[in-house]
Nucleic acid binder design. Sequence first.
DNA 1: TTAGAGTCTCCCCATAGAAGGAGAGTCAAG
DNA 2: CTTGACTCTCCTTCTATGGGGAGACTCTAA
Lengths: 134, 134
Amino acid sequence: MTAVGMKIGALAIRSGLPIKTLRYYEDLGLLPAVGRSEGGYRLFAEESLRRLDFIRRLKSLGLTLDEIQECLAVHDAGELPCGDIQRQLQRQIDLVDGRLRELRLFRRELQSLLQNWQSDPAPNTAVICPNLNV
Amino acid sequence: MTAVGMKIGALAIRSGLPIKTLRYYEDLGLLPAVGRSEGGYRLFAEESLRRLDFIRRLKSLGLTLDEIQECLAVHDAGELPCGDIQRQLQRQIDLVDGRLRELRLFRRELQSLLQNWQSDPAPNTAVICPNLNV
DNA sequence: TTAGAGTCTCCCCATAGAAGGAGAGTCAAG
DNA sequence: CTTGACTCTCCTTCTATGGGGAGACTCTAA
C-alpha cells in the first residue's frame, strides 16, 4: 500500500498545464516523476503541484527553463533557492533596463525620421526612398 | 555585348552580405536576379546593391523581410514607397511603445519583489521559495 | 472479457532569418 | 586540358517552448 502517485492526466487537470508540457518538463529534468507504473505510465507525487507552481511563477518573471532548473537543483539539494532567485531577478532587471535603453533609443530614431518625412517627395532614380536616402 | 551581371560572390563582396543571405533573399523574391548564366549561376544587376542597402536600412528599422518586400513591391510597380514606409515606421513606433509599457510594468514587478526580499528567510516546507510564496 | 479512455514513444511542425555542409556541376586562367 | 575557385541545389541545424498526430500499448469499470 505505497502511495501510488498521480498519472499525468490527473496532474494536468490539477495543475492546469497541458500534458505535453508536463512530459516536456519531465524530459528536461525539471519535473521528476517518482517512477513508472508497470505499464510504463509516469507517476507523479503531490509535490509536483508545488513544483509546477514554482516553475510557472518563475517563468512569469522571465526566467528561462534552464535558469529555473538551476534554482530547482538548489532546492533539491536541500537548500533554500532564495539567493539564487534573487540573483536571477536582479539579472532580469538588468536585462530589462538594457532593453528599455535600446527601445528608447530606437524610438527616438524612428520618431526623428518621421519628423521630417515628406509624404510626396520628388522621385530620385538613385535611391528607392528619398526620405531614407537609400 | 549585353551587360552580363554580377555573380553572387561579387555581389556578396560589394554588398558585404554573406552569399547565403543573398540566396535566401533571392528565394524570398526580395532580390530578383536578372537571370542565370548558361551553367545556372545567378546574375545580378548593379541595381541589386541599391536594393540591398534599402533592405538593410529597413531591417535596421525593425521591419520584417515580409514588410520590406511589400515596400519593394510598391517600388517595383513604379511608385514611391515612402507612404508605405511611413506607415510601417509608425507601426514600429506603436509596437515599441507597447513593448516599453510592458517592460516598465514588468520592471516594477521585479523591483517590488526584490524590495522586500529576505536573503535568509525561515525555511517553509510548504513552498519552495518563501519570498515568492510558491 | 471487453470497450473506451488514458498513456506511451517517436516524429514533424511552428517562429525568423539565416548558417553549415554534402555532393555535383561550372567557370576562367594557365 | 587541367586545376582550383566558384556556384548550384538540397538537407539539416539553430533558439525556446512546446503543439499535433500516428500507431501501439495499458488501465479500469462494467
